[in-house]
């Protein structure tokens, strides 16, 4: 089987997995406790890395852009640049990449271990659909958690930029915050929410698909985990490019 056929087959299987997971959301039994547990593991569990990533990304944006803006006499626009960069691009993408590394790998490894230890077969043998029991709660938890984590990363990034601008470059607090207010439009906020929703679908379906298709014992678990993280990261970045353009066209901001 050549690369193109394999890629198409993989795309088909991943899409079918997502469709079956969402198809099962509205049927009984509903796995509400599992979904809440996954929201805790994915959302609450990722808070620390998102707080640190968001804060320092905002800070470093100020560090890198303030000297350039100052050279053109536009240092008052530092808040504008930090806010636009974070809300439109860095917040959703960095957040998705951090969650891919932490959550995508964990999902793939957990499901892969369950496959090689025959727990998935046991689940099916006991009359449970593993897609509804394992995949749907993880996908739903990611769909809820990633947009919220992205908003948090955006806010903390702007906070990090503000702290850096005020403390290191003596930018007036009101000037920075006024530029931030001018920068962010409703379209940016819509884009900042749509992107993480799409990214969560990408991360969740790829991680679950790779985990459930694990073959070859414990070595296979390692392989599928690596594949899940690499594939999800690359596809998130590629999808971000097309989403950015699509949102510009849809929202009329091009």
């Amino acid at each position: 089987m050549n690369f193109a056929t394999r890629a198409l087959l993989e795309l088909q299987e991943t899409t079918l997995l997502a469709a079956r997971a969402f198809g099962g959301v509205f049927k009984r039994p509903r796995y509400i406790p599992e979904t809440i547990a996954q929201m805790d593991a994915i959302g609450v569990g990722s808070l620390t890395i998102i707080i640190l990533t968001g804060f320092f990304t905002g800070g470093v944006l100020t560090v890198q852009t303030f000297p350039t803006l100052k050279a053109y006499g536009a240092q008052s626009q530092t808040g504008y640049l930090v806010a636009v960069s974070l809300v439109r691009e860095l917040g959703p993408v960095l957040c998705a990449l951090m969650v891919t590394g932490r959550v995508g790998s964990a999902i793939s490894a957990e499901l892969g271990s369950m496959v090689v230890s025959q727990q998935i077969d046991a689940m099916r043998a006991l009359g449970t659909d593993p897609i509804r029991k394992l995949v749907a709660p993880r996908l739903f938890a990611l769909l809820v958690s990633l947009p919220l984590l992205t908003v948090l990363a955006d806010v903390l990034g702007i906070f990090g930029g503000w702290v850096t601008a005020v403390a290191l470059y003596s930018v007036s607090s009101s000037v920075f915050l006024s530029a931030v207010r001018d920068a962010i439009t409703t379209d940016d906020l819509i884009g900042g929410i749509v992107k993480p929703i799409v990214f969560s679908l990408i991360i969740g379906t790829i991680a679950c698909r790779q985990g459930l298709s694990t073959e070859g014992g414990t070595v296979g678990v390692g392989r599928s985990t690596t594949r899940a993280v690499v594939m999800a990261s690359i596809i998130v970045i590629i999808a971000d490019y097309f989403l950015a353009k699509a949102l510009q066209v849809i929202l009329g901001t091009q």
Binding site: S117, Q118, Q119, D121, A125, G127, D129
Partner: peptide, 23 residues
């Protein structure tokens, strides 16, 4: 189908090689 098999599986017990207990 998988859904029809779920009903059949409810009447069958399966003992796996290593137990396959949920960790």
């Amino acid at each position: 189908s998988e859904q029809q098999m779920m009903r059949v599986r409810k009447n069958i017990g399966m003992v796996f090689q290593e137990g396959a207990l949920f960790d």
